[in-house]
């Protein structure tokens, strides 16, 4: 049995756990915990170590989705999680500009760990205050060649689309490498 993994990252509360939950065939093994610090209590629980979802591809192949913890003090987990990944998804809460700067920081950090393909998911597009994908691209200073997709993490079709785009990018990169 072969296993491969992808990493789902992004700032605190961006929707990483929801994203994995939408497509995982097992209940997401989430290391969530009640939030104690007042500042971060926009919701009840947060991921403290990682999320862990699974998609069985066939008899011989399993894909794992790892979600990073969103809070800054768990940074040390990132490098461990990135080890050997096929690619990663950066989830951004499109309705909270106060998280954009951090999202950019996370993006740069992950890019430094491994130059693997990635896509950016502009999440919570169903919310009234969400920024459009085009505006987010400028706000996050992402050049046109970086794939950015609208996303609603609770919607399975939307999550599938993001994962597929990442997989297409991985294929493209392999083609490019082979051509070179």
């Amino acid at each position: 049995m072969q296993t491969v993994k992808m990493v789902i990252t992004g700032p605190f509360n961006a929707g990483k756990t929801s994203f994995i939950r939408s497509v995982s065939e097992i209940d997401v093994v989430s290391t969530e915990r009640k939030i104690s610090s007042k500042a971060e209590r926009v919701k009840e629980t947060t991921t403290v170590a990682m999320d862990f979802g699974r998609i069985t591809v066939d008899d011989a192949l399993v894909l794992y989705l790892f979600g990073t913890p969103g809070q800054k003090r768990f940074d040390f987990m990132w490098e461990i999680l990135s080890e050997g990944m096929l690619g990663f998804v950066v989830i951004v809460d499109s309705a909270r500009p106060e998280t954009f700067r951090e999202a950019m920081g996370i993006l740069h950090t992950f890019r430094a760990y491994a130059p693997t393909p990635y896509v950016v998911a502009a999440n919570k597009q169903d919310m009234k205050d969400s920024w459009s994908v085009d505006d987010l691209r400028i706000a996050l200073k992402l050049s046109d060649d970086i794939k950015m997709l609208p996303c609603v993490a609770s919607d399975k079709e939307s999550v599938k689309k993001v994962l597929l785009e990442l997989l297409y990018s991985i294929l493209e990169e392999m083609d490019a490498k082979q051509g070179a």
């Binding site: 069985t56 096929l86 997989l167 991985i170 294929l171």
Partner: peptide, 8 residues
């Protein structure tokens, strides 16, 4: 990768 794409 093709196998994963088909599955998803």
């Amino acid at each position: 990768i093709d196998r994963i794409i088909d599955r998803i």
